[in-house]
Write a protein that binds this DNA or RNA. Sequence first.
DNA 1: GAGAGGTATCGAAGCGCTTCGAGTGCAAGG
DNA 2: CCTTGCACTCGAAGCGCTTCGATACCTCTC
Lengths: 339, 339
Amino acid sequence: MVTLADVARHAGVSASTVSYVLSGKRSISASTRERVESSIQHLGYHPHAGARALPGGRPRVIALMMPLRTDVYVPVMMEIALAVATTVRARGYDILLLTGEEGPSGVRRIERGALADAVILMDVELDDDRLPLLRASARPAALIGMPADTSRLHCVDLDFAAAGALCVEHLAGLGHRDVAVIGEASAVYARRTGFAERTLDGLRTRSRELGVRLLHLPCEGSRTVAATLTRILEQRPATTAFVVQNEAATEPLLTLLRRQRLAVPGKVSVMAVCAEQTAVHASVPLTSIAVPAQKMGRRAAEQVMAQLAGERNAEGEVALFEPELTVRNSTGPRSHETS
Amino acid sequence: MVTLADVARHAGVSASTVSYVLSGKRSISASTRERVESSIQHLGYHPHAGARALPGGRPRVIALMMPLRTDVYVPVMMEIALAVATTVRARGYDILLLTGEEGPSGVRRIERGALADAVILMDVELDDDRLPLLRASARPAALIGMPADTSRLHCVDLDFAAAGALCVEHLAGLGHRDVAVIGEASAVYARRTGFAERTLDGLRTRSRELGVRLLHLPCEGSRTVAATLTRILEQRPATTAFVVQNEAATEPLLTLLRRQRLAVPGKVSVMAVCAEQTAVHASVPLTSIAVPAQKMGRRAAEQVMAQLAGERNAEGEVALFEPELTVRNSTGPRSHETS
DNA sequence: GAGAGGTATCGAAGCGCTTCGAGTGCAAGG
DNA sequence: CCTTGCACTCGAAGCGCTTCGATACCTCTC
């Protein structure tokens, strides 16, 4: 193992000089810098991670807490995680992966063990039990997802309320008056996940404003889509449009509608709030509002980087992405035949 | 921050005694141990991660290198990753997440920086460029996936060759004589991913033995399934069974067959080598061989743990899981009508 | 041309932890 | 009773790195 002392010896300077070349915290003459840098190259020196973390030093690691749940759509989580990893890596940081299972005790472990310089939490609930710890801590942090109280926190999310509103506007603009919402599994609402609840708020508020009748039903998974659809058509036979926020339900829904001879978008319109990929690859390409997973991951990473760079903003910052609606083949004007 | 010295002071012993209580490397009297342990509890002591990593010490971190690719099925990767994370966490280790993008230089970084005690690599290619580094290194390692040369390596994988063979056996047993294989994207074969190639070997060998005619076509994604199916039916109109090893293609294939009035399993049989979830939730529940993602992750984690515990096996160990075929609703006896 | 101020470098201390060698006290053995 | 060996504990050294003075030299300025 090559140490800093080896580099110093090779370059004919003291260890501290090498350290300052590396950190840039004191001025170094150009000639010395070059000599040291070439020694580093030549010996293939890499700082020892543990030693770097020692005094008040930064381990150059970001902790990322990822959910273990199976009721969230995994590819989106993954895309976020990889965007975070790529972004921080570009700045010389590594990612420590924690599972959501660990909850507050995971945050405490990071804190106590000085394992990481900053924390990024995914799958944040409206009233998340990890937040008090985060607020009490001096450690930079960012949330992906928005809790109810965002004071003194840094958050990144899609503006799901606006997304909900945008769905209603689009459908109302096409003449639809009866819209059904096929939502996430009831467990997702039960544990008060922000995005699901906010989307619903947006849908409801705008529906009321535009005089659209809205029926919302949670949907447990792909197997229960049929039952959900049946209930919708019984309770609201006049339904001509569906908003789906449940990755597992989109394709089964399209299949069922096809089987029932409800042409999309001829007879009924379908739109989704989902991953771009899901919408594009559906058997009927779906008009959708995409969850900007990659952007969110990158932005959260940048938030903690900025905090680490000393641009501490004690007030926090909420970065909400504007929803963008992409019209594809699954929505059209309301059909006036009775279904 | 509570340090080991604080604990020592509180317990009225020396720092080294506390250290020995923690590591168990020397005998400690019961009374002292109790006193120290209660001080640890009382003060909420957590060892400082950096300091622990210092001398020859173990940082208690496992590096996990995960692919960034989009042509692998993400949920399986995720399941493996989370199984690894959960398993090592139970033993007090943390996970450092690297992206596959980093390639060999990522491995080198771990090595040089002493960032992790061991490495687990996912998405291993037959002739992976990270392997020479691993072999040269003293650091414990495990691969998820099997390279061509496994000497001195620890690997975990499903026995994909056996899986391929098992598929053919099952279909031949039902009387099928013309089988089409819808495979992964051609890029997957091009970069010589072990699992795809081995499955194909198994399929081909057993087909030859059992007198089954086999046609293999790669499939780029869900959009190209139709073209692939057309080519199959043109080249081998007698085809009565399909083996799918491509998560994105399964559902579109079922939809297409339905549209062409090829009842499953009445007219044609379909089976898959895929995630359990995909098979169960398909519109026709699929006879399948599941990829035991969770088991693989856990086993790889256990392999490195064993190596860390000193059970170093310089010869390596290849843990191949026996494929298990679950019969569902998608395979049946060959129909003797002409399709 | 002496002090002020700046730049470039060094030595030493110390971060929290592990580990080695040494030391204490005690029981058993000669 | 003295040695031997064992069980237990301590002090000190040192891991690789950062950082804080201190030092040496150089360039201005009055």
